[in-house]
């Protein structure tokens, strides 16, 4: 616990220092890495540690983002941290329900069901256009910066995002290191053996969904806070699949992998866009270049580096006795 806390504090200090060195937009990118990291970390618990492949993680971000959006719009007097807790709670509830429904499903059946969740859930906004904004969604500004703090708002947002993310990660790291983590891994490695060892497999899977959904909900809430929007067009299956891809890119089953995955996702996006601009190709080619490059990187990394970026990093330095979580 103490070690994780110290590590998180050091990370926070480093990030705060970094935000002073970069331009306001890069601060948004830093914050983006933060909330994506949390979302991918949640997926790591579910898929990496428990072996449940979910293609619907975006649904929990959707719930988190809309919870924050609705509270900001309809209950403006609530402080922001209450909104965030509510986002985590709402997503957690959805996670328990999903987990309960999904606990009996195997492999591709779970994948299919969660994909249907990612596609179906955002359609709720169409059913309640007055309350949820229909396909336009909700737009708003979250005021959280106390008067008197004289820094660019994007820098402040980066702080808030990373403070939340690191706090959540400390809890997550302790959770996965402890008894819960051992149970999750036992279920992943062999459900039957885990059951024989007295582990309640169904309950363990639901726990994994709960933890994963809370992370997703927080990430969605932070995204809403950072960008001031919650709209169905942001929560397409492409988001869920992108998060899964980020987890595999970074390295399955480790929170460090989640970090590398989130960084890779943001860097890839920025890099391929710049590439398309720099090459000045004919429009149809340039327009699709980022997509193609993203796909090629996914294929190449998985084929060449089975352990993802984290595996690569680990191979490059001597193994410490206490490897990362």
């Amino acid at each position: 616990m103490l070690r994780h806390l110290l590590l998180a504090l050091a990370a926070l200090a480093a990030i705060v220092a970094l935000t002073f060195l970069v331009d306001p937009f890069t601060n948004i990118r830093i914050a983006t890495v933060g909330y994506l990291l949390l979302a991918v970390a949640g997926l790591t618990v579910l898929t990496g540690l428990t072996g449940q492949i979910s293609l619907g993680h975006g649904a929990f971000l959707f719930i988190g983002a809309y919870t924050v959006a609705l509270l900001v719009v309809y209950v403006p007097s609530l402080p922001f941290w209450v909104d965030l807790l509510a986002a985590a709670a709402a997503a957690g509830l959805a996670g328990v329900l999903t987990g309960a429904a999904a606990a009996r499903l195997h492999g591709p059946y779970l994948a299919g069901a969660t994909l249907a969740l990612a596609v179906g859930l955002p359609a709720i906004t169409q059913r309640f256009p007055d309350f949820l904004g229909g396909s336009n969604g909700l737009g708003f500004t979250v005021n959280s910066k106390p008067a008197g703090i004289d820094i660019p708002s994007t820098q402040w947002q980066a702080w808030i995002v990373w403070l939340t993310v690191l706090a959540a990660l400390v809890l997550l790291a302790n959770l996965t290191r402890g008894r819960v983590g051992r149970r999750l891994r036992a279920v992943r490695d062999d459900e039957v053996a885990a059951g024989l060892a007295g582990i309640h497999v169904g309950r363990t899977k639901i726990t994994a969904f709960l933890v994963s959904a809370v992370c997703g909900g927080l990430a969605g809430g932070l995204q809403a806070f950072l960008l001031g929007t919650a709209a169905p067009g942001s929560f397409t299956p492409a988001l869920s699949l992108g998060l899964l891809a980020a987890m595999v890119l970074g390295g399955v089953g480790s929170l460090w992998g989640a970090l590398w995955g989130a960084v890779a996702l943001v860097a890839l996006q920025a890099g391929t866009e710049e590439l398309a601009h720099a090459l000045e190709l004919g429009t149809d080619v340039a327009n699709n270049l980022p997509l193609a490059a993203y796909g090629v990187v996914l294929i190449a990394v998985v084929m060449a580096f089975p352990q993802g970026i984290h595996g690569l990093v680990r191979r490059m330095r001597p193994v410490k006795p206490e490897g990362a979580a």
Binding site: I53, A245, N288, G295, L298
Partner: peptide
């Protein structure tokens, strides 16, 4: 089970992008 999922996803993106490059959006 995860690697084939991601590789086929990557292929999906590449093929969609190539289709867009050749035949426009």
């Amino acid at each position: 089970p995860l690697s084939p999922v991601i590789v086929t996803l990557g292929l999906l993106l590449v093929l969609q992008a190539v289709a867009g490059m050749i035949w426009t959006a």
